[in-house]
Amino acid sequence: MSETAARPFAGLRAWWTMLSICIEERLAYRGDFILGTAMRFLPIVTQVFLWTAVFGATARGDIAGYSRDDIVAYYLLTMVARAFSSMPGLAGGIARSVRDGSIKKYLVQPVDYVGYLLAARIAHKLVYYLVAALPFAAIFFVCRGFFPPLPDATTVAAFVLSLVLSFLLGFFMEATLGMLGFWFLEVSSVIFAYMLVQYLLSGHMFPIDMLTGIPTGIPGVSLADLVRWLPFEYTAYFPAAVWLGKVRGWALVRALAIEAGWVVAMALCCRLAWRRGTRRYSAFGG
């Protein structure tokens, strides 16, 4: 009886220990980490100049419903979204631990591997936000002129919810991908291909609305429609579009529900891959 009562707390304590270990690990190489965080803003700079040059050479006031200021704001907001949904090293790390055999320590310990990875990732992100908050705030302050007036509280709440969901979606998609390592010895090319697709179709490269006029060969279906059937847009485009007021009312509620649906679906995929994968796994390495 007492054992079962103590179990939830034991679980929590294990989580807390994992979290604090990961935070310490992240802070061990601070110089490298801070450098990496600051560097992430550089691509935005080139994108801003590119689009400024594009708008400078054309007579149009907007492209696919975005003014130049909107595009700058969009790219900055996708940076926030990617800060939540990107999972550097997650898939590769899982595949590597399968390949070199280090995953077996999680198999013999009473620790849930996916739970451990999630705790580690939350720690990773918390430290990242701690370090990145200042440069993010500074850049948003400098660029405040590009943003439309602050949206209402409901939109802000929807934006925050979309970010949290994008974190979970990014995590489960990448974790599932990493578990392909149970079936294939080398998955780095698959991961790279995923990153490409993700970069292109998430809206990280350009707003998905720009694909609206491009036909697909299917009557009445544009390339933008096709992309919207996939989960990628929720990891960059969607949170930015929410903040900029591109998705409102019932369309917003519907989109959030679809995003939550994708999270559940990917979480199930991840669990299934783990269960099937560990069943066929035979340990390598000493």
Binding site: G31, G36, M39, R40, L42, P43, V45, T46, F49, L50
Partner: peptide, 27 residues
């Protein structure tokens, strides 16, 4: 630095500036 995992990132971001014509950097 002892460790520089951002080496490749840094490289990518830095060379990013060379990907477009210099004329776009105006103002």
């Amino acid at each position: 630095l002892g460790r520089n995992q951002s080496l490749y990132d840094f490289w990518f971001y830095l060379t990013n500036f060379s990907r477009y014509p210099a004329e776009i950097y105006a103002g």
